[in-house]
Structure formats: C-alpha cells, structure tokens
Amino acid sequence: MLKILKYSFYDLMRSRWSYVYFAFYLLLGVVLLFLNNDLSKAVITLMNVIIVLVPLIGTIFGVMYYYNSKEFTELLLAQPLKRSSIFLGQYLGVAISLSMSLILGLGIPFIFYGLFKSNAIWDFSLLLITGTFLTFIFTALAFNIALSNENRIKGFGYAILLWLFLAIIYDGIFLMSLVIFEDYPLDKLSLIGTMLNPIDLSRTLILLKLDISALLGYTGAVFKQFFGTNFGLIVSISMLTIWIIMPVLRIIFKAKKKDF
C-alpha cells in the first residue's frame, strides 16, 4: 500500500492541480490577513470559506482523480497487489496531498503574520485539523461514488449533489424541522442533527471554540455546554473519525467485488 501511496502522491505532486489549490489557499490567507488586519478575525472568515470549500474540492478532486487514473489502476490490478492496498493507497495519496496543500497554503501566510506569538494559534490549529478531517471524509465519499458509477458524468453529478446536500440542503431541512417542531424541546435533536453531518459538526466545533456562541442564543448555550467541554470535543472528533472510517470500509468492500 505504501508504494501505491508513494506513486499516487508523486503523480499528484507533479500535476498542476495541487499547485493551483496550494496557490489558492496561499492567496486566500494573504488577502484575509491583509483585509482583516487581525488574526482572530481572519480565522473566523477563513472558517466560513473552509467549511464550504474544502468539502467541495475534496469531492471533485477525488472523483476526478479516480476517473483519470483508471488506466493506472488497471495496470496495477494485473500486478501481484491486493485490491484493498491499491485503492487505499490511491485514496490516501489524494487525501494527503490535498491536506498538505491546505495546511501549507494557509499555514505559511499565518506564520509570517506572527501566528506563534498570538493566542489565535489554537483556534487556527483547530481550523486546520477540521479542514484535514473534511478533506479525508469527502475524498473517501468521492471514491465511493466513483467506484459505484462507471459513467463519469453520473459520478460527477452525484458528487456535486452530495456536496450540495451536506453543505446547503441539509441545513435547510434542519432549520425547517426546528421551526415546525418548535413547541417541543429540541436541544437533543439539534445536537444529534449536527452530529450527523460532518460539515455542520465542524462548523459548530470551530464556532464554539472561537467563543462567539453567545450569538447562537439558547441552543448556543446548550451547544456550548456540550461542545465546549473536553467530552464534547472528544465525541466530535470521534464522530468525524467515524465519518472517515465508514466510507473507507465501503471502499475496501466495493473494491473487492468490482469487475474491471
């Protein structure tokens, strides 16, 4: 698996897209710092961008890489290699190189701005950690979609739909259900609802760490009570980990049964 990972990683490092992605984050980081002139404010703005953009890029890139490396995959399948190691190697190659672009692209401008001397460092690290989690989750989901769909157009379509659902539509449904059932106590339900969507979970996690939960009203207080504690943090991180493990297990399962 490590060899496949190595080759996938090299392959991606040589492709233009990793650099475009890296340059984009570099630019974003510089512009935000320049405009906000303040580290903590820049972190908040950055969060809003990351929460939406990282899943989108992970999904699109994952699907694109799978379809583009079809020839490479077929070449590998005829070699004495386990299927699970071929696909896991490719998945990790994509996810790691995307995460590296994210971490380096954002990290460099913030470090030059004096991140280590400020107290925003923990917020910023949490931002990067959730960004990495989201990259791993959505790349794995993208690989699942691509493995199940031979047709590229369909694969891309489903990938975009998945992103749209988790990033936007889910929130809409969630809010509507809160409005409809407003007569009932909803704090438990909303907690669970947040847990089930990795994007919402990451957003809440960062928001509460940034100590702006007062904006969220009563539910915010409940959330603060839950997420603000170490227990909440551990539960959230385990939830995000489960969001990685489940799709990865399905990649292994699907790959074992697929015909090429």
């Binding site: 080759y7 392959d11 040589r14 492709s15 490396s69 079809k70 020839e71 490479f72 077929e74 070449l75 005829a78 070699q79 004495p80 290699l81 386990k82 299927r83």
Partner: peptide, 29 residues
C-alpha cells in the same frame, strides 16, 4: 493476489498513465 507473481500479463489495449515517462513506468513496475 500473490499468485500473480507467477503470471506475466499483456493487456489488450496499452492504457498507461499518460504523464509518466517510459523509463519511470518501467522502474515503477
């Protein structure tokens, strides 16, 4: 998958990753 160590296989259509050099492909395999 180990038995494939004892098989040499020539696929029907030579579909190779297009951005690799011939030398690199041979080294990789």
């Amino acid at each position: 998958s180990d038995y494939r160590h004892r098989i040499d296989y020539l696929p029907q259509i030579a579909n190779f990753p297009t951005n690799l050099k011939v030398k690199e492909l041979i080294t990789m395999i």
